[in-house]
Simulated scan of single mutants.
Amino acid sequence: MSTEAIHAELVALHDGTPVRSRWSYRADQPFTVIAAFQTERDRWVEWAFSRDLLVEGLRGPAGVGDVRLRPEYEGELTMLVVEIESPEGYAELELDHAGVRSFLAATEQIVAIGAESDHFDVDGLIDELIRV
């Protein structure tokens, strides 16, 4: 199994305030994107969601659960709006659409869209579940 990974830091906006975010993708977890948002100086909140949701959200409204994505257009500027919701609260963040699209393109260099199953270690997952 490949252990290739990509990481990116992007700045999000929450009510006009900059928020640091870290995006990561790993070949050994080919279906999942992790986005972490800095809420305090040393506190990050991580959200895991499918890469397919990111693909869909860059094109149009996507998601019905705790993570929802949609492009938003303001003149010549295109943003990706990320809505995250949990029992602890709700946040709507705006990210540069091109920056997120570049991150997605980098993930495709590791695992092509549609080839995720070729990189997924089912036996490893079963072993992990059995040990719980």
Rank of each mutant, 00 (worst) to 15 (best):
I126P: 01
E88F: 09
D123K: 07
E56C: 01
L93N: 05
L104K: 07
V132H: 12
F49C: 05
M1V: 15
E72K: 04
I130W: 05
V19H: 04
D123H: 07
V64K: 05
A35N: 08
S117P: 00
E9L: 08
F37L: 15
S86I: 08
V132G: 13
W23S: 06
V122C: 02
T32Q: 05
E108F: 07
I130N: 07
I84D: 01
V64G: 01
D118F: 11
R51E: 03
D28M: 07
S24E: 08
A36E: 15
Y73R: 14
S117R: 15
E128P: 00
L69P: 07
W47C: 03
R131S: 15
M79S: 12
I113P: 00
Y90W: 15
E56R: 15
S21L: 07
E108I: 07
I113Y: 11
G75P: 04
L93G: 06
F31E: 02
T78R: 15
L53N: 04
H97P: 06
I6T: 12
D121Q: 10
A106N: 10
A35G: 08
P87G: 09
Y73V: 07
W44V: 12
A12F: 07
Q109G: 04
E46G: 03
G89P: 11
E56W: 01
I110S: 05
R70S: 10
S50V: 03
F37G: 07
V81I: 12
